[in-house]
Nucleic acid binder design. Structure first.
Lengths: 340, 340
DNA sequence: CCTGGCACTCGCACGGACAGAGTGCCAGTC
DNA sequence: GACTGGCACTCTGTCCGTGCGAGTGCCAGG
């Protein structure tokens, strides 16, 4: 049996009321607050069907109904009208971003902005190295046998690593190394870099081979292996809004999950262009986050994606509003990056 | 009236029991668990005195006693025998630190280590810029009118900022600028740098004055104004140990405080050499953290201090153990930094 | 100065009663 | 056939009253 329009409308009403009040919603309250055009008895029948289909459930007999994960899913997929941002929100975004000085700044402000607007936990991934290109590589002598390798990417990220050389390297040689690596790698996507680094070693004069191998090793680590994608987090305090009720008893598992960068990256990473992903409760693969939902999207200059951002909150969240905010912020950050 | 030895012993027993059990401790339980050599009635009298002096209190009439902030203070100041680290802890520290690659790595590992060992929230400040010296300044052309300024300090920190130039700068001039700033600033403490930067501008040839002013502005921001001390945080999930009880109802204020870098820096910053600071409950100036205690200390290579680290937990914490761990970790990190 | 004893105070856990919200179902109506 | 009003039923949350136990304060005696 499929759901007719009114039943969907009832589901929508339940979700909206429950999100607003945090309390199981009963048939009587529903007809009072929404213009459904039918009596509470009819709504009760509809609710019975919705429950049978698994979209809502009763915490106990003779309590109101609460949406299930499947209910939220249906709500998000079929019942969500896009909610335009309020002018106040637009202004907040603009104001938040005036006078940014560098990438760190952009990311930090963004994550705070997201947390404030959505009143949830926000996560922003730094522009992913694998999708960036090398702008410049710098070698700075630290001591006779130590060089600091500094990589600057076109997305503004700066990564540094210490290189231990096998033997003292004269100033002139540092020069030469710097020129060579830049010639070969500047402008290249990091994803394409490894074979180029190999070539660099091959083409190197034998007497410098030792140095170059050291450098190449660290380069490869920096470029790929250590795909250590960085990210920023804000708004954990928002988890406590509405008591601990939203997360079945304890925040513990959620806080634990938030400490694992790997988990967070999985949540907001790997996004297709110009889609917004919504993971609701169980859909999430991380056990600790079974009672949470994640709304995430990619951002980047123009149509390309260089990183992800998103928010995490209780399954009982304002999906339309959150989705709209996440999208708007992502677009804004993209524009900001495009300007540099 | 001053407290005789036995009363102090009673206080110690109360603190230790309460920390262990989380429950108000009564006179009878005390004499059973500790060899005080007197009867429970005597202990009751002592407790009455301790209460009058403000070191313990009763949650309600006819409940056991609980230490007050002042009680913990006295305990920490006069009753704490230094607890040596267990071999297991020593091993954990050693093992945690094998194979560190750079400063970021050291800081992240340290903060996790601290959180794991103390089972509390850990904070580690990056080596403070103001106490570091410039090792090298690098200028990398990004476009004709944009330079990336990269500063490397002797503590391993790398800071970068974008410099917008008023007009296109030819390659040679970049060269010249780089030479000049390095000559003037390399090796200098950042704290001493501002006047040197001023001088740099004065000594500059008039035709390059414009460029130098831009550069100097950003330099000053990087060096001082933006004293943006970075830090790392871990172990927030530990706040939920023992329910929410430890923080009088909600974690909210604590989580909020933990999001403010400024607050955290105040907590673990400004330390005198080789002391461990313990702030208990109210002693703390931040309202949100009235129900928390902070144990912090400075670290650095040798006897100098380049940054602070510490942990935050409920006032009801194992002070001797925590103090020992914090000290040990700080010393270890100091040694690690000294090796570089 | 310490101790045993005793009366007293509370908090808390348990259980019954009650009100309120919400449901399911049924018979009646359009 | 779909909707409605009505009714009985179920369950929860809350409020009280009670009893128990832990713990105290105080006092008289060693």
């Amino acid at each position: 049996m499929s759901l007719d329009d009114r039943k969907l409308e009832v589901l929508r009403a339940i979700v909206e009321d429950y999100v607003k009040t945090r309390e199981p919603v009963g048939s009587k309250a529903l007809v009072e607050r929404h213009q459904l055009g039918v009596s509470s008895a009819t709504v009760r029948n509809d609710m019975a069907v919705l429950e049978e289909e698994g979209y809502i459930r009763q915490p106990h007999t003779s309590a109101g109904r609460v949406p299930t994960d499947a209910g939220y899913r249906l709500f998000v997929d079929r019942l969500t009208r896009i909610k335009p941002l309020s002018p106040a929100e637009r202004r907040a975004i603009e104001r938040f971003m005036v006078g940014v000085v560098d990438l760190d700044d952009v990311v930090h402000r963004t994550v705070r902005l997201l947390a404030t607007l959505t009143r949830q936990v926000a996560v922003v991934q730094y522009p992913s190295l694998s999708r960036s290109a090398v702008r410049h590589l710098e070698l700075v002598p630290i001591s006779t046998t130590r060089l600091m390798l500094v990589m600057i990417t076109d997305t503004g990220r700066v990564e540094q690593r210490l290189v231990e050389m096998p033997a003292p390297v004269p100033e002139g040689d540092v020069w030469d190394l710097r020129r060579r690596v830049n010639e070969k790698l500047a402008g290249q996507k990091l994803a394409d870099a490894p074979p180029l680094v190999e070539k660099l070693v091959e083409e190197c004069a034998p007497e410098r081979r030792g140095d170059m191998v050291c450098l190449a090793t660290v380069l490869l680590e920096t470029l790929v292996e250590r795909s250590e994608e960085r990210l920023a987090l804000a708004g954990t305090a928002n988890l406590t809004r509405g008591g601990v009720l939203d997360f079945q008893g304890t925040l513990r598992p959620v806080l634990e999950a938030l400490e694992e960068e790997v988990i967070l990256l999985k949540l907001i990473g790997d996004l297709e262009p110009s889609t917004t992903r919504v993971l609701i409760g169980d859909e999430n693969e991380i056990d600790n986050l079974r009672s949470a939902s994640v709304v995430s999207t990619g951002y980047g200059p123009g149509a390309t994606i260089v990183g992800g951002l998103g928010v995490l909150g209780p399954t009982r969240m304002d999906y339309p509003g959150t989705i709209a905010t996440v999208r708007a912020v992502a677009r804004y950050v993209g524009d900001l990056l495009a300007q540099n």
